[in-house]
Write a protein that binds this DNA or RNA. Sequence first.
DNA 1: TATATAATGTTATAATATAACAATATGTTA
DNA 2: TAACATATTGTTATATTATAACATTATATA
Lengths: 163, 163
Amino acid sequence: MKTAFLDKGHDHGDCIQAALNAAEVVCQKQKARLTPIRRRVLELVWRGHAPVGAYELLQILKDEGFNPAPPTVYRALDFLIQHGLVHRISSLNAFVGCSRPGDVHDGTFLICRTCGTAAEMLDQTVLGTIGDMALSNKFSLSHVSVEAVGVCVDCRDGDRTEV
Amino acid sequence: MKTAFLDKGHDHGDCIQAALNAAEVVCQKQKARLTPIRRRVLELVWRGHAPVGAYELLQILKDEGFNPAPPTVYRALDFLIQHGLVHRISSLNAFVGCSRPGDVHDGTFLICRTCGTAAEMLDQTVLGTIGDMALSNKFSLSHVSVEAVGVCVDCRDGDRTEV
DNA sequence: TATATAATGTTATAATATAACAATATGTTA
DNA sequence: TAACATATTGTTATATTATAACATTATATA
């Protein structure tokens, strides 16, 4: 059965490539500029499926010679979030690539505390339920964040610890 | 119809009193000590129905002569969270009183961006749906945070801005 | 080219949170 | 009660995350 968690043996290069390709398309469509820094930050966010902190990104960029200050990274992240390419995981103060790039939507995540993976639930059921609750409370909904922490099946079964 | 949002005209003194009473009961039951600082922090968190930041609490305590450093407040908040008396709203880095004290449970909130009120949805539907999603992803769930931002009915209708 | 706009660079600082160790208070047992 | 163990709070320092404000550079458009 297909789950929100990818197989640990998946070709992650494909994930990165797909994310970058999608970003090009999205930016072209929205007449937004995927500058080198923005592109590189997106690529780094896609290093894996575990959310990455802004200062972690900053350190990597420094090692590469970009030598940016915090605002540079935060701006890039803001841009990527605005354009539906990245989600912020507020319980972790960290950022993760969006699984449905370009379609700006709310993030609903299952986050494994062992391997760090944040799997986006693309199923609309959860958001639908929250929408219903909002409606019955006469609450005009803008955006929703769902962050569920636990242990993914691979970490439970396999005692593995890294993505 | 009853909603998760209380009427703006409600007697908030009752809310505070109920929260403190419940805290006494809970702590007695759990053989935990509701020390003066913990009690005072809880009372301050219950100043209103809008989440309060740790440094905001810190400032109030300073004005009262407690003169605490940040760890004091964070420890009190941790204690209150552990015992199911307070929830942390991670998208706001702030804390709010729990509507069902003592029953340790996950927080699901509707947060009004106008008046700041965070109304806890005590209905179990949302958590049930997330539980189902976890199950179908073979994900062993520990805890969930749902934070939905929008505008509450009073702020939409009444153009009021404070709780 | 001139001009406007967008993006990035740079410096400083704000806001949130925790580590580490000392001191004090409380509960428990001999 | 005295001695001890444990829990709580005090204190200092610092880590971590994020933004304000203004200067500079790049890009797009008239």
